[in-house]
Design a protein around this nucleic acid. Structure first.
Lengths: 159, 159
DNA sequence: GGTTCCGTACTCGGATAGTTGTTGTCCGAGTAATGAGGG
DNA sequence: CCCTCATTACTCGGACAACAACTATCCGAGTACGGAACC
C-alpha cells in the first residue's frame, strides 16, 4: 500500500497558497518552482483538487489556482480524498461467500464480514485524525521562517 | 491508495486455520479451495506471513501451514504489516527542502515536516485500531455457523 | 486624445506515452509416506 | 516377521511473465494584456 505522492504535493501547495495569501491566482509554474516539481504533472494533480472544490482555477493569461475556502475549512481528509479518490484502502471482496460458503444460505451473510468491519473501523480512526487537521492548524504550528521563505521566493518569481 | 488483496486473503486464512485447529499443517491447496483462490498466488502470499512469524510452514509431503502463535497473540496489524510491508503509506520526500527551501540553512529543517507529522499521527491511530483487533476477538464476534462450515468443508476435502 | 480591434503570450484541461508495482503462473528443492527386498 | 532402503507423490519456496496503476509529457481551448489603427 503506497499513497500517491500527489497527496504530499497537494498539501504543500495548499499551504503555500495560504501563506502567499494573494487575491490573484497563482499559476502552476510558480507552485512547481517553489518545490522543484514537474510542472505539467503537478497541474494534472491540482485539477483533482479543483474538482473536489478545494481550489478554484482561473483559465487564460494571469490565470492560476486559488484556495476556494478559508484555511480553517480545508482539512487533510479533504485533500487526501480529492487526490486518492473516495474508495476505502481495504476492499472486501466477500471471499467468505466463495468456496466453502458458496452453497450457504443467504441469511448467513446478513451481517457484514467481521474482517471488513474491523478494517473499516481502523480506517475510520484514520479519517477522523485526518479530518481533525486543518490547513489553519498547520499554519499555526509551522515556524514563520518557512512562510516567509515561500513568500519571498514567490515575490521574486513574480517580478 | 489501494491495499493489496493479500491482506484479505491472509486474514481469512489465519481465521480458517484457527477454526480448523488441527495440529497437522494445512496445505495451500486446501486453503485455496476454502475461498476459491488461485493456489499458487495464495502460496506466495502466505510466505510473507511465514517470514513475519505469524505462520509456520512445513515442507514436503503432508506439509502445509500452521498458526505460529495462539489466536490471542495475532493482531490485524501483524498481518497487514507482514503482507504490505513495514513502510508508511505516506512517504515524506521533504519537498520543503527543494525549490524555495533549497538554500535555507539546515537548522530550519531540524523539526520534522508538519505535514508528515500530521499524516503520521493519522496512521498511528489506524495502526492502534489494527493492533487492538486480535484473531481471538474475531472468533468471538463471528457466528458459529461460519466456523462450522469451514471445518465441515475442510474435513470433506481431507478425506 | 480616446476608442476599437486584432495579434500575442500565457494558462488550464484533457488526451497521450513511459515506468514502476501488483497480480498470476511455473518449475525445482526437499520431505514423508509407501512398498519391495533382504536378513 | 522385522528392518533397511529406494521410489513416489506431495508441498513449500523462489524465479519468471502479464496486467494494471501511477508517473510524466504534450498539445489544444480559452483568456487577458498590449499595441496599432482609426475616429
Amino acid at each position: 500500500m503506497r499513497m500517491s505522492e500527489g497527496v504530499e504535493w497537494g498539501l504543500h501547495c495548499c499551504l503555500a497558497l495560504a501563506w502567499i495569501g494573494d487575491d490573484r491566482p497563482v499559476p502552476t509554474a510558480r507552485l512547481a518552482e517553489l518545490f522543484d516539481l514537474p510542472q505539467a504533472y503537478l497541474n494534472k494533480r491540482l485539477q483533482a483538487l479543483v474538482r473536489a472544490g478545494i481550489l478554484s482555477s482561473v483559465a487564460g493569461a494571469r490565470g492560476g489556482f486559488l484556495l476556494a475556502r478559508p484555511p480553517e475549512k480545508i482539512t487533510f481528509l479533504d485533500v487526501v480524498t480529492a487526490v486518492e479518490g473516495p474508495e476505502d484502502p481495504f476492499r472486501c471482496t466477500e471471499i467468505r461467500q466463495r468456496g466453502a460458503g458458496a452453497e450457504a444460505p443467504a441469511r448467513d451473510f446478513r451481517l457484514p464480514c467481521g474482517i471488513a468491519t474491523a478494517m473499516r473501523r481502523a480506517e475510520l480512526a484514520w479519517r477522523r485524525e485526518l479530518a481533525a487537521q486543518t490547513l489553519a492548524h498547520m499554519i499555526e504550528v509551522t515556524p514563520e521562517t518557512a512562510a516567509v521563505r515561500i513568500r519571498r521566493h514567490y515575490e521574486r518569481l513574480s517580478r
